[in-house]
């Protein structure tokens, strides 16, 4: 397999190690009331599709960047490669135009949510 690195161009897959499903980026809130259940799903359960699969690869023998590779598990064809950092940041950042205040609001809102959930009965 050849992985088309966003910075380094086409590289042999043997330079990389794979961690697994890209959903591992979506770490649950550890303070939420259902955290044990959420982490069970996060850590152990997988979609394991036959077909398109987004997965985390680490360029261990290269620039040591984390990538999100979209690959077909039936044909091994690599269809898309992106920097995991970009994907993670774009999914957390508020949409362009809302500004830093909205970002700050989003950041401070989360722990509050967690506290409420923690107090509520499980």
């Amino acid at each position: 397999m050849i992985i088309n690195h966003p910075h380094l161009g086409p590289r042999d897959a043997a330079e990389f190690t794979i961690l697994g499903d890209a959903d591992l980026l979506k770490r649950p809130d550890w303070q939420a009331g259902n955290a044990d259940y959420a982490f069970y799903h996060y850590l152990y359960l997988r979609d394991n599709p036959a077909g398109l699969h987004r997965e985390l690869w680490f360029h261990e023998c290269g620039d040591r960047s984390w990538l999100i590779v979209t690959r077909d598990t039936v044909t091994h064809a690599v269809l898309d490669v992106a920097l995991a950092r970009d994907v993670a940041l774009s999914s957390k950042k508020p949409k362009v135009g809302k500004g830093a205040r909205a970002a700050k609001k989003a950041r401070t809102k989360k722990p509050a949510k967690g506290c409420i959930a923690e107090d509520s009965p499980k």
């Binding site: 190690t17 699969h53 997965e55 690959r71 091994h76």
Partner: peptide, 13 residues
């Protein structure tokens, strides 16, 4: 091989 696969064939590494 280490990556998810349903292909019944592996790679050279």
């Amino acid at each position: 091989d280490g990556y998810n696969s349903y292909a019944q064939r592996g790679n050279l590494p």
